[in-house]
């Protein structure tokens, strides 16, 4: 307790010191203005407009110099003391302007960013393997806690699964029953078995041949998610479809 008080005092003191020093600093006179630049030194500026283009488009470089006798832009060549020029880079490029004069050398840069063309259109779905199509189209079925009945909100997924599987009558599949981490190992294996069977029976009722469908229970042995939250538990209470030969 004593230590805590001491710490509080130290903190208050430190804050006070910062405030006082900060206030003092404001009162110090401003530093003297820097000396004017040497009259003979060259100046240079370079801008690109627009700074970002798509490949094949142009951008305009605009530059201005003073006190220079020899002005060049890397990648463009010698140029007038001031002016503008259109460029069409194929890749992102940094343009450097160099101005040489009796007072020295000054340079300025401008960057033009070239966006890569959009990727080619994806290959049509006919190029997907059967397994990839299966993974994209067959949705897992989720269950309520300690239940193996198909929930009303899972009927849409189930009907879509059934329709897809009927369109692809040769795809073999395994339905895995999974449970959340709560409850007992052995009971959850039996419950997972009931969940896998419930999905199989519902698909069979919707017209999918039962011979194609294997079932297996993992209980709580192979969770999708390992946090102790309801969101995670819901992820683990499911009938999971696996493309299997």
């Amino acid at each position: 307790m004593k230590q805590l008080k001491l710490r509080c005092f130290a903190l208050v003191f430190a804050l006070g010191a910062i405030l006082v020093l900060g206030a003092c600093h404001k009162k110090t006179p401003p530093p003297p203005p820097p000396p004017p630049p040497a009259a003979s030194a060259p100046t240079a500026s370079l801008t690109a407009n627009p700074e970002t283009i798509d490949r094949g488009q142009s951008s305009t470089l605009t530059w201005q110099t003073a006190n220079a006798t020899d002005v060049s832009i890397e990648g463009v060549g010698a140029v007038q003391a001031s002016g503008s020029q259109s460029v069409t880079p194929t890749e992102s490029t940094t343009y450097t302007l160099s101005a040489h004069g009796p007072g020295g050398t000054q340079s300025a840069t401008a960057r033009v960013t070239v966006n890569a063309p959009p990727p080619p259109t994806p290959t049509p779905q006919t190029n997907l393997t059967e397994e990839q199509m299966f993974a994209q189209n067959v949705k897992d079925i989720y269950f309520d806690y300690d239940k193996a009945d198909i929930r009303p909100d899972q009927q849409a997924s189930l009907q879509a699964d059934a329709a897809f599987l009927q369109q692809h009558p040769t795809m073999p599949l395994t339905i895995e029953g999974h449970c959340d981490e709560r409850g007992s190992t052995e009971y959850n294996l039996a419950l997972g078995d009931n969940r896998a069977s419930a999905v199989k029976n519902a698909l069979a009722a919707a017209g999918v041949s039962g011979d194609r469908m294997k079932t297996v229970s993992y209980g709580k042995e192979k969770p999708f998610c390992t946090e102790s939250t309801e969101a995670c538990w819901q992820q683990n209470r499911r009938g999971h479809f696996v493309y299997s030969k």
Partner: peptide, 26 residues
């Protein structure tokens, strides 16, 4: 529903205790 975890009466062997989800929770 789930029926699992059977164990015998270790004295008599004439009874089995087990876990059933027939009425809801096990």
């Amino acid at each position: 529903g789930p029926d699992v975890s059977p164990v015998w009466n270790r004295k008599t062997a004439s009874e089995i205790a087990w876990v059933s989800g027939r009425s809801g929770l096990p």
